[in-house]
Nucleic acid binder design. Structure first.
Lengths: 146, 146
DNA sequence: TATATTCCTATTAAAATAGTAGGGATTTAG
DNA sequence: CTAAATCCCTACTATTTTAATAGGAATATA
């Protein structure tokens, strides 16, 4: 309930790894797996939708790996979360107007749609670059497992 | 993911029923069950935490039921969602500082905490009264099942 | 005393989440 | 040309969460 799944959380960590290597050689999943302590096999599940969403490029074969498709300043958390989680909407109601009774529901629906938009907008404002910048400023502070 | 469960959605609908009857006699769950098309047994699971959070009062026995503990203008969606869903945080990390390595995680954690606060703040701004007012204004519009 | 109600706990079914497993395809290095 | 490192794809499984049902005890009214 209202929780981000590991897909979203790990997905951002994964992308942040690529962002920190932006401009360099492709980063293989094995590296990220070690640094982020997430199994390589599980990372494969996260990387697939990111690639499909064209947020990353892949290079196959030895010396291969992944790179960001755009500079870190142009990739937002909304892009990432939408890609790996499918959507950001807080409710599923895709609006089947044939089932329209009970005006009460309609008003709750509006509220949930607004909330979804708010979340989406907020995540749009955070780029990978921002996260990196914040990181370098707040170094030597404590961390936790997300 | 980032989805509200039925607890949150039904919980708001339930409270809205009570809000619309505010000042009147206690409303039994059987009534709400019929109007909202949610089984009475399931409503019992939603009502329990609402009572525990002191958002409603109950009257037992025949002619019993539930009433809001406060006027609809003083009960927010945040109150309701927090009560029925347990919390609004988008992540679970309650911050175990002993596990602190990887400064990267720390920065993602900050982002999720911010998002949680944003959601919480937004829901705090919506009272049951607001929803009722909105409803009377937009009558005869279409509804959907949330 | 019969009935309508809240209240409490246990159980179950279905769906989503989290993660593993195996192997094919591609590219580089030697 | 071959071995190794990599991405890629699909299937499977275990765990947890969600959603809901079930049965009955306690309480109050008429």
């Amino acid at each position: 309930m209202l929780k981000l799944s590991t897909k979203g959380r790990y997905g951002v960590r994964l992308m942040l790894e690529l962002a920190q290597n932006h401009g360099g050689a492709p980063v293989p999943l094995s590296d990220i797996a070690v640094r982020q302590e997430i199994s390589e096999k599980y990372l494969e599940h996260l990387i697939a939708p990111l690639k499909k969403a064209k947020l990353i490029h892949s290079v196959r074969g030895m010396k291969g790996g992944y790179t960001l498709a755009n500079p870190p300043g142009r990739i937002t958390l909304r892009d990432i979360v939408t890609a790996v989680e499918g959507s950001i909407s807080v409710v599923d109601c895709t609006g089947n107007p044939s089932k329209c009774r009970r005006s009460k529901n309609c008003l709750t629906r509006g509220v949930w749609a607004e909330l979804s938009a708010k979340i989406s907008g907020h995540l749009s404002s955070i780029t990978l670059q921002k996260l990196i910048d914040k990181n370098t400023k707040t170094k030597e502070k404590h961390a936790d497992v997300n």
